[in-house]
Computed example of a mutant assay.
Amino acid sequence: MTTFIPQLTLPQFVFDNPAVSILLPITLGTAIGYSSRPSRTKETYGKIKNPPGRPPPGVFGPVWTILYGLMGYAAYRAVHYGTSPLNSPATIAAAKAGATLYTIQLGLNYAWMPLFFGLNKPLLATVDIVTLLGVNGYLTYLWSGVDSVAGWCLVPYLGWLSFATYLSAGATYLNNGDLEGKNGRKEL
């Protein structure tokens, strides 16, 4: 079982306020998206070889906004209600451990785009997303035992992460792990 690590966990007030819990991942995800220069990212996405079934670039923003909102709501429910003193010590421990995993998965999530499109490291980005998928699989399992609504809120995220892992691994393979020259800038 994972343990609660306060130094690696978002502050409790984030989980106690539904608006903050929902808007934080949306805001940070949007900031990462824009800091990765959307026009350059879109251009690279169009130039690289992608596996079958890749969605058009305009799909990603709306899908991620919804998923970030759902994961934020899941975090609010699982931690806020799960840490109630009326719960068993095991439920409280699972809610807190999940808060640490949730924070870690946010970091992994936000690292993917800069790794793939910013640093031209698709293999590293694929390792990142495979790790992210595993962490979220366990987080979904853990929080499902704390609050079923929280667990169900993470299921679409798991589905999309599975698809995104396929896209990332497929693009890495089809481009021989090299995106240099496909985004108009040379790798340092």
Rank of each mutant, 00 (worst) to 15 (best):
residue 69 G to M: 01
residue 50 N to I: 10
residue 133 L to E: 08
residue 44 T to F: 11
residue 105 Q to W: 10
residue 55 P to N: 01
residue 31 A to G: 10
residue 80 H to L: 02
residue 31 A to C: 13
residue 165 T to H: 01
residue 45 Y to N: 11
residue 103 T to Y: 06
residue 36 S to D: 10
residue 62 P to N: 13
residue 61 G to K: 08
residue 36 S to F: 00
residue 87 N to H: 13
residue 154 L to Y: 00
residue 111 A to Q: 09
residue 130 V to H: 03
residue 143 W to H: 02
residue 104 I to V: 15
residue 160 W to Q: 04
residue 69 G to V: 07
residue 43 E to V: 03
residue 162 S to V: 08
residue 132 L to N: 11
residue 49 K to V: 13
residue 90 A to S: 14
residue 86 L to Q: 14
residue 127 V to L: 15
residue 138 Y to K: 05
residue 99 A to W: 08
residue 60 F to Y: 15
residue 140 T to F: 03
residue 75 A to R: 01
residue 43 E to C: 00
residue 112 W to M: 06
residue 113 M to N: 10
residue 119 L to Q: 14
residue 62 P to E: 12
residue 134 G to F: 12
residue 165 T to F: 06
residue 142 L to I: 10
residue 33 G to Y: 14
residue 165 T to V: 10
residue 91 T to G: 01
residue 103 T to A: 12
residue 150 A to Q: 03
residue 165 T to Q: 06
residue 119 L to H: 13
residue 81 Y to G: 15
residue 109 N to G: 04
residue 114 P to H: 09
residue 88 S to A: 12
residue 84 S to Q: 06
residue 71 M to Q: 08
residue 79 V to S: 06
residue 103 T to W: 09
residue 144 S to Y: 12
residue 103 T to V: 11
residue 165 T to D: 04
residue 156 P to L: 02
residue 149 V to P: 06
residue 46 G to I: 06
residue 56 P to W: 04
residue 153 C to I: 07
residue 149 V to C: 05
residue 164 A to C: 07
residue 113 M to I: 15
residue 133 L to T: 15
residue 133 L to R: 07
residue 119 L to I: 06
residue 89 P to T: 02
residue 108 L to C: 09
residue 58 G to R: 03
residue 95 A to K: 04
residue 91 T to M: 03
residue 136 N to R: 02
residue 37 R to M: 00
residue 118 G to S: 13
residue 89 P to R: 02
residue 96 K to P: 01
residue 65 T to P: 04
residue 90 A to W: 01
residue 131 T to Q: 00
residue 80 H to Y: 11
residue 106 L to A: 13
residue 53 G to P: 08
residue 35 S to K: 12
residue 93 A to I: 02
residue 92 I to V: 15
residue 75 A to F: 10
residue 64 W to I: 04
residue 110 Y to G: 03
residue 108 L to R: 05
residue 104 I to T: 09
residue 105 Q to Y: 11
residue 124 L to Y: 09
residue 40 R to S: 09
residue 159 G to K: 01
residue 105 Q to H: 12
residue 157 Y to A: 09
residue 105 Q to C: 10
residue 53 G to N: 08
residue 30 T to N: 00
residue 56 P to D: 11
residue 42 K to N: 13
residue 154 L to V: 06
residue 137 G to M: 13
residue 53 G to I: 08
residue 39 S to R: 10
residue 95 A to H: 09
residue 67 L to N: 02
residue 129 I to Y: 05
residue 151 G to E: 11
residue 109 N to E: 03
residue 107 G to T: 09
residue 91 T to H: 00
residue 79 V to P: 02
